[in-house]
Design a protein around this nucleic acid. Structure first.
Lengths: 344, 344
DNA sequence: GCCCCTCACTGAACCGGTAAAGTCTCAATT
DNA sequence: AATTGAGACTTTACCGGTTCAGTGAGGGGC
């Protein structure tokens, strides 16, 4: 990108105006000792008058902190656009970053390999001071990479997936179990789950938890699970397949892995002439505002996604300031019954 | 943020390994003339072996391009999470940025003033090479600021709003007119519009266009307009108010400014015992996948938001490489009739 | 009155690149 | 044989900060 026509004001100008050396200005702005109160004030005054603030670029180059956090998201763009989750998550992250006047470098990547490459070049190029890692898969290469590079990261995902990295996670297994128990308690004996992308670690966790929760119910209970790609279309397809079976051989309740798919499921049920919740109960996940806008409203496993993002950012700052690896569970999603669930 | 434990490989290492000066390495990596083919190859080989790529920080400081684009979004986080528009827009922007290995610096701000301050400090600190400006208001301060700073920007909004900056825009006025004409052609004589935030420039444009379009219809036609904040809740409230009037005194068709509000409207209509589209027609805007997931499906003014973002990014690159100010309209949203519109 | 310390601040080196000016070599021109 | 010029690099001076080894003044102790 091209040059700047603006006459930049630099540390030198401030130093000159305050009648000190640039070293002194640097000391003042980094709150380091060795300056008298008077000089410090004079320097700040000069900076204010000139409208100067230190260049992060120069600062970074000179070897101090990098106040940028990286976030690479690896999902097809088409889906990202739809997931209320991410925007809410990002806004939570941001809410903490701003307080520390730290910026978020966002990049959508197409493959885990591309993400690894990106992290390497970001880190080597000192573009970021740390990174948030999301969407863990089994045998995810990123823990090893982060460790090799010495890149400070926080992993969003269950500790079993994140290879010993500091992690922030929701207890999806417990939440799935709660969802299943809730539906069973309503009287459902034929429960399906429309899951997310199979390659994602948290999908496996939920899948296993679903199996286990169903196993703990009375033996006559039937269960189905389908993997999708999180898109509404996939959710609609999965729902159609599940509900196509004759009455008595199809699920009477369906749990979805996000809310977009649940919305899609709602329409499919209607299209097939089934009433929600009388003929089939639907339970969404993540609970964005969307769940309250449908008719019937969607019961959901709800979850403070904004707060989740904020906690992730806080944890990253902790890591950056020397906290050792740790595991930070955030509150388990809680069942929020609304209009889409009822006894069969 | 803390130091790096990684032994960094720099241009000097590459130079040493290739047996040249660092100036030569710089020439090679910037594809400048003055090096023999052989030397160039040797340098690239050395860089590859060492896994080196130039530090953008150092590059930036040394006064060449800054390969980061800024985007500050000023809307309450709560709403952002819901707007499929933004994520899709961002993914479109990204799709072009990656090709130029350029990053997107994203920040959510709370006020236009904060955004102006951010742009100043980003630019002064050489954090960004250019910026994308969205959500113009009347008397928006940003055109003046961008001009004063010499900050290369592209404004997303109608030229009448963007104060002479290079702009990329959709012809909302024409689209609104098309929507109104379509509804009128179906036979509607009582048409409402649930608009977005009143302070936003494009809302005013749509509001005026709606008035004008309605004025061109037969005199008996009645019209309503409501301003909201783009949230589903606000959309629901507005719809409820509009439809609360006795039959004959309420709109038979409603146009929404985004799709979230249209989804909300759908439920409100159902809740009030009105059938869509028989009793009331609904028309959404922006047409994310959501519109195809509801029942009935939502007719919408549809709009390639991803492509819009891509065009914005391309235009910004144009500006950065010296293109003068210009106005870049992207295709007008087109009416996509689905199940939510019909004759009254 | 001398020595030693501390405090407040300066100067220069450095971070990892870019860019412009300088040097060297060698072939073509006169 | 001397001049010129182009090509291929190297040297050097920044960019805007940070950091650290000085430096000089002033105060306290004896």
């Amino acid at each position: 990108m091209t040059a700047t026509p603006t006459p930049r004001v630099t540390i030198k100008d401030v130093a000159a105006r305050a009648g000190v050396s640039k070293g002194a200005v640097s000391l003042a702005f980094n709150r380091k000792p060795g300056l008298s109160e008077a000089t410090r004030d004079r320097i700040f005054a000069a900076a204010r008058e000139l409208g100067w603030s230190p260049s992060t670029t120069a600062r970074t180059l000179a070897g101090s902190r990098v106040d940028v956090v990286g976030l690479a998201v690896c999902r097809p763009a088409r889906l990202l656009g739809l997931e209320p989750f991410y925007m809410e998550f990002i806004s939570g992250v941001e809410s903490v970053l701003v307080e520390r006047s730290c910026a978020l470098l966002l990049r959508l990547v197409r493959s885990p390999e591309e993400e690894v490459g990106l992290l390497e070049s970001w880190w080597r190029g000192r573009q970021i001071g740390g990174s948030i890692l999301v969407d863990f898969r089994s045998d995810d290469p990123r823990p090893a990479v982060a460790r090799r590079l010495g890149l400070p990261v926080v992993a969003v995902g269950h500790p079993s997936l994140t290879g010993g990295l500091t992690s922030v996670w929701t207890d999806d297994a417990t939440a799935v179990a709660e969802a299943v128990r809730y539906l069973a308690a309503l009287g459902h004996r034929a429960i399906a789950r429309v899951g997310g992308a199979a390659e994602l670690g948290h999908t496996s966790i939920r899948t296993a938890a679903f199996d286990e929760a169903v196993g703990a119910l009375e033996p006559a209970t039937r269960a189905w699970q389908v993997a999708t790609d999180f898109s509404g279309d996939a959710g609609a397809r999965a729902t159609r397949t599940l509900l196509a079976a004759p009455a008595g051989e199809r699920p009477t309740a369906i749990v979805y892995d996000n809310d977009i798919m649940a919305v899609a499921g709602l329409s499919v049920a209607a299209e097939m002439g089934l009433r929600v919740p009388q003929d089939v109960s639907l339970l969404a996940w993540d609970d964005s505002q969307l769940c309250r806008l449908t008719r019937p409203t969607l019961s959901a496993m709800s979850h403070d996604v904004h707060g989740f993002g904020a906690e992730v950012a806080r944890t990253l700052f902790g890591t950056l300031t020397g906290d050792g690896p740790g595991s930070h569970p955030v509150p388990t999603p809680v069942l929020t019954p609304r209009g889409s669930t009822a006894p069969p």
